[in-house]
Design a protein around this nucleic acid. Sequence first.
DNA 1: AAAGCGATCAACCGCCCAACT
DNA 2: GAGTTGGGCGGTTGATCGCTT
Length: 301
Amino acid sequence: MGRGRAPCCEKVGLNKGSWTPEEDVRLVAYIRKHGHANWRALPKQAGLLRCGKSCRLRWINYLRPDIKRGNFSREEEDTIIRLHGALGNKWSKIASCLPGRTDNEIKNVWNTHLKKRLAKTTTTTTDTTTPKDKYSEEEPPSSPSSVVTSSMTSCSSEQGESELHAANTNAVMSRGLDDQGIGKIEMGLCSSPSTNTVIILKDPLEEMPDISIEPEIWSMIEDDEPSGAPCGGGGESESESGRWLAYLEKELELWGENGGDADINQELGDDEVEGGDPVTSYFHESLSSSSYSTPLDDLLY
DNA sequence: AAAGCGATCAACCGCCCAACT
DNA sequence: GAGTTGGGCGGTTGATCGCTT
């Protein structure tokens, strides 16, 4: 075949549309255990009726632990505007300068929000009103043409491509992404040095509704977690949602040293902790180097 | 209270490109 | 060097939410 490409997967019999909590669990559990070296093979191995691309997108845009959710700060918005001016619609490059933000998210914000604001300011140059929107409500008004004091490392204006590369590298390093693209950014509190703002990184699945997880999924997880797996035998003292929360905290390593570290180490086993798969190693490393060990509940309330 | 409408965002589609054979 | 494969990216769509009338 020449330029033409075969479809990324057989589309027949695959789920489309919104992801169910169960699918999320499967994906997170699988990636946690095996990483995502091969997206095409991943859905089959994880028992997901999804296209590999769909899995990748779901992970990158929603399930990845270092996703920063919530409103964009004025600073972030200004940075996007400035970078868009320099780079155009290179969303992934822009995203690489905004730790915790995804290209898809930035693209959405631009198309639905910033583009309009920009159009407004270009037509009425004296207009200093801030659009009434949820992204900027809490930010102090600033002139669109004002100099941006970016919190990002090295993302200065008038970047050449090579400079941008360096900026990207710095941004990535500051996020601590490993080669699996999995962030080592600490879940919990993340401070921005230049602004002294404190961002609460909320868990992407925090609002997961009560769901009943099929035993099959837990057995998949239990493969390397012989004891203390979150299924716990099914419906004992904890509620379904409580167990989900507990599992998620373990999954994303939100438990502190007092809260669950020992349990996790025990579950993972020494082999995996020391030299196991990159994902497990990452989680362990992240945990051991983390100065924040806040349970999910503490983050949320 | 209900309907209409616009805004938002998650997800899909298809193309491009780099790596591999 | 040509062909193939898989990941990544940007554009677009459709469902949902929230505000207004």
